[in-house]
């Protein structure tokens, strides 16, 4: 549905995007993730035809953005970082304007009515946009993107500046949309990607550093298991016994105490899961394990590690990482 090939955007000697390629299928919901200034917005602006790339191409449903921009743009609904609303218009006036602007062919009243219902802005339809709350402005921005029922909808940081309740509502809305549209969503909030997206593309400094299914992204970076155990027992004995287990590389002792336990973070060599061995060890010695948790497998730390690695701060040991 959306095909991006070798996209380069250069400002002077700076590369905002450097050879970015990916393809997004129909009905997919994809998160574009990256630190601020990584090139997410630039990528979205190019996909929507707001900016032109220095080189490379964007194809929407088989239509090249440069060759036939009008046809290609008809297939896209876009919510930029700041909702492009005119403060002096009412919500209805604005949506009608967008309807005319996009040269929409669907029947006006039922179409706009449906959008208003989906985005839940029925109550504010006759109010001036300048008097709306930030969350409602954002909804109007989303509603605008949906006018014309485009096949692809692109949202640039749709939840920035919203309160937690509004964020949840917008995320739910995004999930509903994914059933009918191909959704691309940019964000630097990782929980958002985990909550909403099936696939994640991570960009840093204008380059794609990961492109995976959301649930796989953690596995691609983790080349060893890392768990934190809370074990009741004499600290020195527990540590030395843990270190003797097969595959254990390193044991870190934490300061927090729970009952009479200490916490031990255990790093293992690639592919070895030491949980059973730790259990057997402890039960044979009569030490109680009162907690096991995985460490560093949330998207947050994966993301930071990926970004650090691409910045050259960490050695690259993800050669097995597959690229689509």
């Amino acid at each position: 549905m959306v095909k991006v090939e070798n996209l380069v955007k250069r400002y002077g000697t700076n590369y905002a995007l450097n050879d970015v390629s990916f393809e997004i299928g129909e009905g997919e919901i994809v998160g574009l993730l990256g630190p601020n200034g990584a090139g997410k917005s630039t990528a979205m602006n190019i996909i929507t035809g707001y900016l032109s790339a220095t080189s490379g191409s964007v194809t929407i449903d088989g239509t090249d953005m440069l060759e036939d921009p009008i046809r290609a743009k008809k297939l896209i609904g876009f919510l930029p970082e700041q909702p492009p609303v005119y403060p002096e218009m009412t919500v209805m006036e604005y949506l009608n304007f967008v309807y005319d602007l996009k040269g929409c062919e669907l029947e006006r009243t039922p179409h706009l009515e449906e959008i208003i219902q989906v985005t839940k802005i029925a109550e504010v339809r006759n109010r001036l946009i300048k008097n709306l709350s930030k969350g409602n402005k954002q909804r109007v921005g989303i509603a605008q993107a949906l006018v014309g029922d485009p096949k692809v909808v692109i949202f640039d940081e749709p939840t920035v500046g919203l309160d937690p309740k509004q964020i949840l509502a917008v995320r739910n809305l995004l999930r509903t949309l994914a059933r009918r549209h191909t959704v691309i969503l940019s964000t630097h909030i990782l929980a958002e990607v985990q909550a909403v997206c099936e696939r994640v593309i991570i960009i840093n400094k204008g380059k794609i550093i990961a492109d995976e299914k959301t649930e796989n992204i953690v596995k691609t970076i983790e080349d060893g298991y890392r768990y934190r155990y809370k074990i009741c027992g004499p600290q020195r004995d527990v540590e030395s016994a843990l270190l003797k287990l097969n595959g254990v590389k390193r044991v870190e002792i934490g300061t927090e105490r729970d009952l009479d336990s200490y916490s031990y973070t255990v790093d293992c060599d690639g592919g070895i899961d030491a949980r059973k061995a730790v259990f057997n060890l402890c039960s044979s010695r009569g030490w109680a394990i009162i907690g096991i948790e995985a460490v560093g497998t949330d998207l947050e730390s994966v993301f930071i590690r990926l970004v650090d690695r691409s910045d050259g701060l960490l050695p690259d040991n993800t050669k097995k990482k597959k690229r689509r």
Binding site: N45, T48, G49, Y50, P69, I70, R71, K73, K74, I76, F78, P80, E81, Q82, P84, V85, Y86, P87, V98, L101, K102, G103, Q144
Partner: peptide, 11 residues
């Protein structure tokens, strides 16, 4: 007002 993004990405 950044509304030009709407106009410039419209068909």
């Amino acid at each position: 007002m950044k509304t030009e993004q709407l106009v410039l990405t419209a068909p």
